[in-house]
Design a binder for these strands. Structure first.
Lengths: 242, 242
DNA sequence: CGGGGGTTTGAGTCCGTTCAAAATACGTGG
DNA sequence: CCACGTATTTTGAACGGACTCAAACCCCCG
């Protein structure tokens, strides 16, 4: 009885595939053992929340498999997905380093196995191995760059271009090319979530999707997208220059 | 002959007032000496650029006095100010930690004395004193939070509310209350730069400013702003809820 | 079969943009 | 100190993209 939902004692940091690309890649044997002992693993179903905006941060989370959305919500209900986290990513570290409550919520987009790492254990690791801190600095630098980039995009590009950009990002992780050479993306997001990613309303996403179909750039069937012409999709990003 | 523009050998990290609030606050005497030896000080006039988007990062910068805008620019000329840096702030650290070229430019908003700290020296400091790394983690966590917050704002709030928010932020650093109790802000930004901060066009800023004047919330005279009713300005932030 | 959420579509409106011109501020040289 | 040229800011009018509100549709699930 270790499946479904509750704590899952059998997961093992040594064999965790995501670790290689994560901040934990430079740990020695003893460090991994420490990590392995203090973590708690959990499986989250789509929609389940991992942590909530406003709550105190008790540690960080580690995505072993699956995908997670980090959302920021307004007093009047407006919300935006500020980033996605995939296998290997560490979650909730911003609040940890700021030593402040979470300023965003995280929920699973698909069934996801996620480990929790306690504050004190993490602090111990940071003390033992300086590379861990460096990895976080690098990781955070990337996230910050992406956030800034998103701001520029939101201000400069129309929804259609932003959606194209989103598809191109999702392609890298969720694309599977078919037999006849066509690119197929299995979206991990609902239309609502796509809207939240792009910073707009679901209705507008629907229209933009329609636009892409009418222009024969891609075919949408639920969460399945067939990109017929990748070039044209790339063109959308800067077609309004010149 | 040490004024105006060129390298300025006389500045001293020991006496630098900004240091207390910066990442360098926990350095011991030896560390500060190291910092002091390897840095190069410089005075930048308004409009002068400190570093340029796309260029390689050779180290970080330290604002001793003045204020700096960090801008991100598009291939087709759109640009946004992603953050401001004041006395005590460290500049260009994102590129340093990502070990990548600058993804934004920095230019002075007012006459500013800014020190440059070499890559190798910084690396040495990070090695010697782990608190430095922690400080950067904290600083970056704050910047990331602000970037995310800005994204939500841009998506959810109209220009008028975003401008109100900008004024409230600038107030904290550039306000001087007058004899008769009125709040006065001396803006460090041109209208164009305000537009770039809020993510809109100068024309729209002009209209929003007009709006505030018509509603008797504040009086604008060039870069001088008199806020007659701070309450009403605060209300602008969430007046469209309920 | 009958909800109920999510998605799509439509019509109307509003906010912000665009383009163009007038007004103002600013630095420079006469 | 004033005159002038240039850049910034302001204003106006028209346009357009995205939002709102509302209804229809769809799909999944009980």
């Amino acid at each position: 009885m270790d499946d479904a939902q509750g704590t899952h004692p059998r997961t093992n940091c040594f064999s965790c595939r995501g670790r290689a690309q994560s901040e934990w890649c430079a740990l020695d044997h003893g460090d991994v053992a420490l990590l392995n002992d203090c973590k708690a693993s959990n499986v989250y179903q789509p929609g389940q929340t991992i942590f909530t905006q406003g709550a105190a941060c008790l540690g960080v989370f580690c995505v072993e498999t699956g995908a997670v959305a980090i959302r920021k919500t307004d007093v009047d209900g407006n919300s935006v997905i500020v980033r996605l986290a995939h296998a290997g990513a560490t979650l909730g570290y911003r609040a940890f380093f700021a030593d402040a409550p979470y300023r965003a919520s995280a929920d699973a987009l698909m069934p996801s196995r996620i480990c929790f790492i306690d504050k004190v254990a993490l602090r111990k690791l940071l003390g033992r191995n300086p590379t861990v801190g460096h990895s976080f600095l690098r990781h955070m630098a990337r996230d910050l760059e992406e956030a800034d980039e998103a701001r520029l995009h939101a201000a400069a590009l129309p929804v259609r271009a932003r959606l194209a950009h989103l598809l191109l990002v999702l392609k890298d992780r969720f694309a599977s090319s078919t037999h006849d050479g066509k690119l197929v993306i299995e979206l991990p997001l609902s239309r609502q979530d796509m809207a939240a990613m792009v910073g707009t309303r679901p209705e507008t996403i629907a229209r933009a999707v329609r636009g892409f179909q009418d222009d024969r750039i891609a075919r949408f069937d639920g969460r399945r997208v067939e990109v017929s012409d990748l070039e044209r999709l790339l063109d959308e990003l800067d077609s309004n220059e010149a």
